[in-house]
Write a protein that binds this DNA or RNA. Structure first.
Lengths: 216, 216
DNA sequence: CGATTTCTGCACCATCTGGTTACTTTTCTG
DNA sequence: CAGAAAAGTAACCAGATGGTGCAGAAATCG
């Protein structure tokens, strides 16, 4: 018998599958990013999501599938944001600078992304392999960068022969490495790599690196 | 208490504490690199090392300390190799190229290093924090690169104002990122990133990137 | 209303895992 | 050679962890 004399009456959101699922995914993103696939605890995810562990298995079936879904969402999120940059309307050098800046800021605002990707590579990309949408997104992204390069060569500001995939990798690398290794880096190099000044300086350095790399 | 017979005689010990310890560390390096700190199994390490699990706890006390020792060894190994490069005797541009090449090849030959560092950063460098020798090694390394930069500026081949720490980070980054993300990269970019040609191409690209970055 | 389906959560389990106790075997020293 | 010390082993344990069974509540539908 439930008590009928409940004064607060928490009638709000009694049953919302979509919201629960979203909360689980958000909690999973954080927990997986914080502790890796093996280190993450399903119970912790359930608790953080204010959901029951049973729901995780109801919606996703296993810890593994939950990880895969989380990862897929993370990739789709950054690729979607990249597409919205509208670099085609910018002058080539400005477009490239904007991309470097965006990549850096995205990593800064979404630190989980980097850690999730690291985890996935620890597992030899076994989850990404199962997803086929991601390739499409990547292909579009490479094409976007290639278009900038072509325009730059045409207008004579860029040198010819720069491979767009290599450039993409390098743009990601110089931001990604700095941030993923910020903990060991701060100790070994004896400086706070996350201080505002250090971050600004690194971004400037990265823009310089990329522009010099493609310069005619 | 001194042995009257020759002290360096080969004792043909079937029991060899040093060798066992070394085997454990080698096995630990592989297991931690393959599965991360949380994913690694102490039993597996014992088995791979052809030692008993009890020995691990006898020599190291805990999984955590074993990881820390493994990591410390890995760092000391690469820093020692770097010091042996003798870059001071080379012309500045050649010295830098050699360093880029060395870094790349070290990562390629010692894939465990990258994964161990990733694991350590997942744990916010809590183990590196406890080691104080590593800072000394790093300091010496930065000084080495700085010396190259200074010489290059003096002879007019490098531009002034390049920060040696940023340069170090960048040299590491462009190799590290490519290799640590080779699994997801191979799928998303739809090309075998570990094919010989792809590796050669990446090394060339990296050398170009660094030389252009510092060029006058 | 009442039957059916979808969602929620408590309690529980089988297994795994880091760590330990107790013991045997080999080596070294006096 | 004795016997202490070091090196090695097997069996075991307590707690944690991914995963479930089942009962019941909330929505949906006839």
């Amino acid at each position: 018998m439930t008590d009928p004399a409940d004064p607060t009456e928490p009638k709000t959101r009694t049953r919302d599958a979509g919201a629960t699922k979203a909360r689980i995914l958000e909690a999973a993103k954080r927990e997986f990013a914080k502790n890796g696939l093996a280190g993450a605890r399903v119970d912790v995810i359930a608790e953080k999501a204010k959901a029951n562990k049973r729901m995780i298995y109801h919606y996703f079936g296993s810890k593994e599938v939950l990880f895969q879904t989380t990862l897929e969402n993370a990739y789709i999120d950054i690729r979607t944001a990249e597409q919205k940059l509208n670099l085609g309307h910018l002058e080539p050098a400005a477009a490239l600078e904007r991309l470097v800046r965006f990549t850096w800021e995205y990593y800064l605002k979404n630190p989980e992304f980097i850690t999730l990707v690291n985890s996935e590579n620890l597992h030899r990309a076994k989850h990404v392999k199962k997803s086929d949408v991601l390739q499409t997104y990547s292909r579009r992204f490479v094409a976007m960068v290639n278009e900038i390069l072509v325009r730059g060569v045409e207008t004579g500001v860029f040198r010819p022969g720069v491979d767009p995939v290599q450039l993409n990798i390098t743009i990601a690398a110089i931001g990604y490495y700095y941030l993923t290794n910020r903990f060991t880096g701060s100790i070994l190099f004896e400086k706070d790599m996350m201080a505002k000044q250090a971050l600004d300086e690194r971004l400037r350095f990265n823009i310089e690196t990329i522009l010099r790399l493609v310069a005619a």
